[in-house]
Amino acid sequence: MSLLTPDSPLAQKVVPSPNQGERKGGRRPDILLVHYTGMRDAASALARLADPLAEVSCHYVVLENGRILQMVPEAARAWHAGASVWAGETDINSASIGIELVNPGHDGGYPDFPDAQVEATIRLGLDITSRWRIPAHRVLAHSDVSPGRKVDPGEKFPWESLHAAGLGHWTSPAPLGDGRSFGPGEEGQPIQALQAMLAMYGYGLDISGVFDPRTEAVVAAFQRHFRPALVDGVADASTITTLRDLIRSRPEPAA
């Protein structure tokens, strides 16, 4: 499919990807999902995202210098989320608009995201969320919807800066320190309460009362986004307090 006019006025070029389809059931996007490309450079990432054999794509790519490229129309279903879940939704591709930031990722040295790239992501994200009325708490990381399977955009991504500019949900992380913590293998009511809070926020997690590998992966995903000072999958006092503060500060859905 070729595009003549970008959806966002901020897109500087259209690089069409064939890897797209219709949003299932006419689903309206209400999630903005942020990724990193995890490839050596922009050329490699763009080639893969446009390769029909790769069967992956996204709506927008943000280069290190802040240039924004569009690959799939916003009304279409790009193939960027893979096996994912959020707030009971399992077809995240139909529910979201995906932005890929060019960055080689954890396996490629994981450099900091340049200021120009972050600023462009903020402008693009504000434009998208305004036009589609996407709530702040549904501006998410790929790792949020695919814990244990994906880690992007990772703990270096400046979510706090996005929030300061009006994009995304955030609360100041509780400081690291002493206190009761919960980890793999533990069972009981405190674990059940932790799982219930994570599920309440949106993470795909069964409330079993057992701190199993899935719970560890979800806790690590939460830390990577909201408490990045230490990502270890252990639910310490800082993690639990930050989670509670996020739940309390999340706006109630409109009636």
Rank of each mutant, 00 (worst) to 15 (best):
Y203I: 09
P158K: 12
A199Y: 00
D7A: 11
S84F: 07
I92K: 02
F182T: 04
H80Q: 10
L46C: 04
L198P: 00
M39N: 02
E74V: 13
E160L: 07
S17W: 04
S94H: 01
S57M: 08
P153I: 07
H137A: 14
A81S: 11
E216L: 15
L49K: 02
D245M: 12
K24D: 10
I97Q: 06
V139R: 07
P158A: 08
L243Q: 08
L101M: 14
V102R: 00
M39V: 01
K156W: 01
D127A: 03
P251N: 14
A220G: 03
V34R: 01
V145E: 13
P190T: 10
L140P: 04
R131S: 05
A42Y: 11
G168D: 03
S44M: 01
P173N: 06
P158G: 09
G188Y: 10
A136S: 14
V62I: 15
R244M: 12
S130D: 13
F211K: 03
D51G: 15
L63F: 00
W86D: 05
I191C: 09
P6V: 03
T5E: 14
A221L: 09
H142K: 15
A254G: 15
E55H: 12
S84E: 08
S17D: 08
A229F: 00
A87S: 08
R131V: 02
A78G: 14
T241F: 01
A255H: 11
R149P: 02
Y60I: 04
Y60H: 09
S96D: 06
P29A: 14
V14G: 06
R180S: 08
R40C: 00
A87G: 03
P18W: 13
G177K: 02
S84P: 02
G125N: 02
P9W: 08
S181I: 02
V14H: 06
H80P: 02
L10I: 07
H137Q: 15
A76P: 00
L246G: 01
S17L: 06
Y36C: 11
T242A: 03
L69I: 05
H163F: 06
G88E: 01
V210Q: 05
R138N: 13
V231W: 04
S44D: 06
A75M: 04
I31D: 00
R244G: 13
V61R: 03
L53F: 11
H169R: 10
P18K: 14
G109S: 14
A116S: 13
F182M: 12
P158S: 12
V218E: 03
S2E: 13
D232N: 14
T5M: 09
F182C: 04
P158V: 13
V210D: 03
R28M: 09
L10D: 07
N19S: 11
H35K: 10
G166S: 08
D206V: 00
G21L: 07
R48I: 05
H225Y: 08
S96Y: 00
Y36P: 00
S181M: 12
A50F: 01
N19H: 09
I92A: 00
D112S: 10
I191T: 09
T215K: 07
S96H: 05
R133K: 13
R133L: 13
A42P: 02
P52V: 04
H35D: 11
D30P: 02
V145H: 12
P6Y: 01
A47F: 01
E22T: 08
L46R: 08
D112I: 10
R214N: 00
T37D: 11
A221M: 13
G26N: 10
P175N: 07
I99D: 00
A81V: 11
R48H: 14
